[in-house]
Write a protein that binds this DNA or RNA. Structure first.
Lengths: 103, 103
DNA sequence: CATTCTTTTAGAAATTTGTCTAAATATACA
DNA sequence: TGTATATTTAGACAAATTTCTAAAAGAATG
């Protein structure tokens, strides 16, 4: 089910990319539509798109001259869940209390 | 309740730091204990601790010569939730379907 | 106080990242 | 085909990041 999470967290590290994802949560948009919401150049934005695509956080579909970007929410959720150890609870050979040292 | 999320996501972007957090989910540890689990130098690790502290993802407590690191799970959860829009659902002036463009 | 152990700070070097402009590619349409 | 629109690729450059070694700082103990 899941892929490498490193590209996902790298992708989430940039505020521009997080804002792109946030916009796409409201619905798909073309590259140009997204571009109007930012002050950086289109090539810079395109670079961010590439990073999001590499992390599989967004999917693309060509529609005439436009390219429509949509969110892949599953990857986002998997990364979060994995980080919070919802899936792999660990070996539990160390204590769980979290209120002090092991000594 | 919440602070700036940029330092949190920057902190999560590095695999070493994510592994530190994962360890701390199992229970608090001293800097030295954590260091045994990694191959990088202690100063490098200390640098990562600083970034995690700046993001408020970990808390520290001195215990004699040792410094004990513990996870601040709340910050982690808030960042995740915020990203998934659990808290701030957006303006809903754009469509929610996520299956195509707005055109 | 001197020594030892633990951890951090300082400063430097190599790599990565985010941004730009200029140019290329892809599609639509007269 | 030629032109306009939409988007990406190429290449360069400044800033940020990760790592290291050397040295300093904090605490326990003889």
């Amino acid at each position: 089910m899941s892929q490498a999470q490193q590209p996902v967290f790298k992708a989430l590290a940039d505020p521009t990319r997080r804002e792109i994802l946030k916009r796409l949560q409201q619905g798909s948009e073309t590259a140009g539509e997204i571009a109007t919401a930012f002050t950086i150049s289109k090539p810079s934005l395109s670079h961010h798109f590439n990073i999001l695509k590499a992390a599989d956080l967004v999917r693309t579909e060509r529609r005439g001259q436009h390219i429509v970007y949509s969110l892949n929410a599953t990857v986002l959720q998997e990364a979060m869940a994995m980080l919070l150890d919802v899936f792999s609870p660990g070996d539990s050979s160390r204590q769980q209390d979290n209120d002090g040292s092991k000594t």
